[in-house]
Design a protein around this nucleic acid. Sequence first.
RNA 1: CGGGGCGUAGCUUAGCUUGGUAGAGCGCCUGGUUUGGGACCAGGAGGUCGGAGGUUCAAAUCCUCUCGCCCCGACCA
Length: 506
Amino acid sequence: MSEKQQTAISPRREEDFPEWYQQVIRAADLAENSEVRGCMVIKPWGYALWERMQAVLDGMFKATGHKNAYFPLFIPLSYLEKEAAHVEGFAKECAVVTHHRLELRDGKLVPAGELSEPLVVRPTSETIIGAAYARWVKSWRDLPILLNQWANVVRWEMRPRLFLRTAEFLWQEGHTAHETRAEAEEETMKMLRVYETFARDFLAVPVLCGEKSEGERFPGAERTYCIEAMVQDRKAIQAGTSHFLGQNFSKAAGIQFQSREGQLEHAWTTSWGVSTRLIGTLIMMHSDDDGLVVPPRIAATHVVIVPITPKDDSKAAILEAAENLASSLRSVAFHGAPLGVEVDSRDLGGGVKNWEWIKKGVPIRIEIGPRDLAQGTAAVARRDKGPKEKEFVPLAEIPQRATAMLEEIQATLLQRATQFRDANMVKIDTKEDFYKFFTPQNAAKPEIHGGFALTHWNGSTKIEEQIKTDLKVTIRCIPFDESLEPGTCPFSGEPSRQRVVWAKSY
RNA sequence: CGGGGCGUAGCUUAGCUUGGUAGAGCGCCUGGUUUGGGACCAGGAGGUCGGAGGUUCAAAUCCUCUCGCCCCGACCA
């Protein structure tokens, strides 16, 4: 290559963020668009991220008393009709199965055998799980039911985007039923905190916790809570939600039980979920102009060893040293599991291999060449630092230093993300400043905008809608506690109890 | 679903206005030289020009329809 590229990913983030995002996914070999519109193929490197997320979250769900189960993909159309708000929320994006057979006519397969009742491919499972709970619950002694399912769901989206918005996506949905309102409310909040902890401690994603405004609420929920993150184009992304469903779905599905007092009562239910969108969040949160950056605690591969073998006579010794280092690294525990280590012994130039792993975001890259071997060292590079920053570390010290290094990377990523968010989150007290804040600095790149704005708000949905129309900005959440301070809503002049978070969102 | 842009090899694309049957760079394969920063030389594979109709002696190029992608709007995890 005559002219070396400045960065591995082109365009860079500030040039064209959406395109950069696509290129990172391709460079890291995470996923690709499928031949079916809106659907994606998640490739091994991307799926490994999901598997790690599943493993960690599943452990957290079990630790909070939940068990896994599985409910059908197909939901009778009539089930969806039972909850009015739910219908309104999901009807527009449902895939519907109407036939159960194909027949060959004039050389073409055509659907045949029309179903007596169409089946909806689940966009979410409240209704069908509700129906099951209705069968299972008779007495207060049957409660609570604390279940989770790992599944795919389908929402026929208009504008799909890899990981962020696809027609089919993978997620987990927790569904619980409780004896009392208080217990269900507690569950809703508990799981929100699980998500917050997971995002912060594993994904190095700092999130704001709060409640959704009425306009942003889950269809059918009494209250929706969320964790909200700011990615590098300063937009907000909802990374997880937890819903207090009140008795809406138990009334719709008939989840009734006899109480301790002998009364027939409706159960109180919750649901909560995170999806493969977390992968998109992760990408937009930490990746740079050289590609993906994977936080160590969610990485399946923590360390890659790249043998540099310029000469045949030293090749065998270098490969052996690399394998030896790999096995001693694999005996190191990182948060209770062995380190994931790969040795890239492919017969390619060192530069080529290095850049591949940089683009894939492996936290630690170790190069061993003839010079290292002679000195008993290896060149160690961290993904949170520049691609050319390398530290020469004695081979024997590498395993013992690896975990500390990974912890440092993890901490750095969280710190960077937090600083970025805080630097782009401002309190605003006048309508004029607010509109100014959300007006793009450069009309040619409208995706780069102010960030998060904290303002007072009188609670009016009308105001929220007006601002959405004017600026495409919405209330991302009404944060808990810290923002409780009386003030004046800059849009209405009316009194307000607290500030809310406004932003453009994914 | 509305507005705009774009579909030529795995990727980036030239050619299209002025129709004559496809070219490049990167990547890939083979051999060799190489290897601590995405290397070089030589040879090679790979395209029904998104798809379907139409106009024409002749279509990547002109016309119609259609599908897909990207951006904006509406919607969402």
